[in-house]
């Protein structure tokens, strides 16, 4: 059915686009192993993508110049807390909307749907003012708390739970299990897919958070990686090898998680499209 010429055309297109997409990453990877001066010198040649003399010096330099481990820990802690607590809180809310009858449910559901379109950018300024007023700036808490409850996560859980068969829960109810018991022993084990999707989506959007940490943190002890790389870039002397090594170490954990759980990533992102 598909001719050889058509297949060749598809592969040529893929290869060409693939090279364009991979080149910035290859540039960074190669540069992270090169002596600093060479990164800039060779940026305009094919050697930009190939480290002739490999060394780990840049990686060592990152650790002597800044407290990389600290930034990594901050990012892991903040994102771990947002994802973990977010899953619990938003899944429970999604379940309450999908299965329980309570006063004000329909009103609250329309509120959640309405709130879904408010981006963090639209509330960053007043939130910044509130946080300054309460003296909460420069803490972990201020980077975690506002992002736990998430309207879109609630919506994803809600639509998933609505579509689940009721029989399982009814069996548990007959056995005398309460709402929470039912949720943890019946719903949770049968809804791993939606939990994975929401976890990955939350992680993807929060791991790169830049605007909010920029506004509310000033000391390195609580700053996450995305802010740290920007600060590191403007820290003299300008050494591109070090910056790329920092970047590689910053993205490597995420890249590994991505490669291992790739089908889940794709499903998680595709889940956002179902909304329309």
């Amino acid at each position: 059915m598909t001719s050889r010429a058509a297949i060749a055309l598809v592969y040529t297109g893929l290869l060409l686009m693939g090279l364009l997409f991979i080149s910035p990453i290859a540039f960074m990877l190669a540069g992270s192993f090169k002596p600093d001066a060479r990164v800039l010198m060779e940026a305009g040649e094919w050697r930009a993508f190939w480290p002739a003399e490999m060394s780990l010096q840049n990686y060592r330099d990152v650790f002597t110049r800044v407290d990389f481990a600290r930034f990594l820990w901050n990012s892991l802690l903040i994102n771990g807390a947002i994802v973990g607590l977010g899953l619990l809180v938003n899944a429970l809310a999604g379940y309450a909307f999908a299965r329980l009858a309570w006063r004000g449910r329909d009103l609250m559901l329309s509120l959640v749907l309405a709130v879904m379109i408010i981006p963090i950018e639209a509330i960053a300024v007043p939130l910044f003012y509130l946080v300054s007023l309460f003296g909460w700036r420069d803490t972990y808490l201020v980077q975690i708390l506002p992002f736990i409850a998430n309207a879109f996560s609630i919506y994803l859980f809600y639509t998933y739970f609505i579509g689940m068969p009721r029989e399982l829960e009814e069996a548990a109810r007959i056995d005398g299990a309460g709402v929470l018991r039912t949720f943890f022993s019946v719903i949770l084990p049968n809804a791993k897919a939606v939990f994975a999707s929401v976890a990955i989506l939350t992680f993807l959007t929060q791991w790169g958070a830049f605007l909010w940490p920029l506004m509310v943190t000033s000391s390195e002890s609580v700053r996450p990686l995305p802010l740290a790389i920007a600060t590191f870039h403007s820290l003299p002397p300008l050494q591109w090898g070090d910056i790329f090594a920092f970047g590689m170490m910053m993205v490597l954990p995420v890249l590994l998680i991505f490669l291992v759980f790739q089908p889940w990533f794709v499903r998680g992102v595709a889940a956002t499209g179902i909304k329309g």
Binding site: I25, F27, G208, F210, I229, F244, G247
Partner: peptide
Amino acid sequence: LFFMPVVFPLSLVAVV
């Protein structure tokens, strides 16, 4: 390959 840049934080992408 095409999806890979999505996992890169924007701030890192901007610096590169």
